[in-house]
């Protein structure tokens, strides 16, 4: 059952720009444009895209902070913008760059406030807090004023604060930004555990693809306000024309690059040559063709780095986005 439904959602902003000394020009920017997706209860979805792609705008609409210009959203059966306060009890939000904790007070006090604002029953509060303290190792931090916590400790504290009221949906906007490797791992393990144990639906935006690799079976790539990819992480390789690399070690250095159809040499170093070929092609016929013409010593195949795949995708999305923008201007 879908717990998040987004249907043809658009969000336009009016931007005023100075033109000359006094004149100002108004222009419309479509931050999100024709966005549609569904997330099933209990899913953990990575939501990625370049800066300004519309990730934060989407999260803000899903929490009810922003009202959509067009389209329909439903989260846990509620219309976020109309039922903001009611929805707030059923969702948890962590803004990675902005803490909701009380700067000058011990961490514990922020949790006490959440208990009272959300009216969490004592037993449930105790249980949830104990679990967070245990899994996020918050015990020694509870009586420390938040301003004295490190970034990683504060993030763990923020995530715990967002989960005390048992939200059905948890939004995480850059939860690992600026954290060291140890803190990142602890946060990831915790999120996986929460998702598995409580069935909390998680939607997270990130620039760190390791977050996605470790946590999400599904990834949505957004660019220019549209979903350009929605599926498993492995599937990303098959789209956007990504390439695998065949590394060939020859018996002796060749003066010229290996020349065979279906692949091209991207690098040469003594007897070793690197050949790029489409990720969707099989490596076997290439290996056979090379072995027939050159004395081979060794070879290996390298999968494309996911960062490169996505970078290529963003590049591809640009032209498409521009085209759609032109289309909408012409339509208006």
């Amino acid at each position: 059952m879908a717990i998040i439904e987004v249907e043809d959602v658009a969000r336009t902003f009016t931007v005023r720009r100075k033109v000359g000394r006094l004149k100002r020009e108004r222009s419309e920017v479509r931050a999100v444009d024709g966005l549609s997706f569904e997330v099933a209860a209990g899913e953990m979805v990575g939501y990625i895209g370049p800066n300004g792609a519309g990730k934060s705008t989407t999260i803000k609409m899903l929490t009810g902070i922003l009202v959509p210009s067009e389209g329909r959203l439903r989260v846990a059966g509620a219309d976020p913008s109309r039922e903001r306060v009611r929805l707030a009890r059923r969702i948890g939000v962590v803004f990675g760059q902005r803490t909701t904790l009380w700067w000058d007070l011990p961490l514990r006090d922020s949790y006490e406030l959440a208990r009272r604002i959300y009216r969490i029953e004592d037993a449930r509060y105790r249980r949830n807090l104990d679990r967070c303290i245990d899994l996020l190792e918050l015990g020694p931090l509870l009586d420390v004023p938040v301003r004295q916590l490190s970034l990683g400790q504060r993030m763990r504290g923020d995530i715990a604060a967002a989960l005390l009221h048992d939200p059905e949906v948890l939004y995480l906007d850059e939860p690992t930004i600026g954290l060291d490797v140890v803190s990142k791992n602890r946060v990831r393990e915790f999120l996986a555990e929460i998702n598995a144990e409580s069935g909390t639906t998680v939607l997270l935006t990130t620039h760190d693809l390791t977050d996605i690799e470790r946590l999400c079976s599904r990834v949505m790539v957004i660019d220019h306000g549209r979903v350009v990819y929605d599926g498993g992480l492995e599937g990303l390789h098959n789209v956007g024309g990504s390439e695998r690399t065949l590394v060939v070690d020859l018996a002796a250095p060749e003066p010229d690059p290996i020349s065979i159809p279906g692949a091209r040499v991207v690098r040469m170093e003594g007897p070793r040559q690197w050949l790029a070929f489409p990720a969707t092609d099989s490596a076997a016929p290439l290996v056979a063709a090379i072995a027939a013409r050159y004395p081979l010593v060794d070879l290996s195949v390298k999968e494309p780095a996911i960062e490169d795949v996505i970078a290529r995708m963003y590049g591809g999305g640009t032209t498409e986005g521009e085209r759609s923008l032109e289309g909408s201007v012409a339509g208006a």
Partner: peptide
């Protein structure tokens, strides 16, 4: 600084 957002995600006026 955008901190009004953190207020709007709490279940209170």
């Amino acid at each position: 600084d955008g901190s009004v957002d953190t207020v709007l995600v709490r279940p209170a006026a």
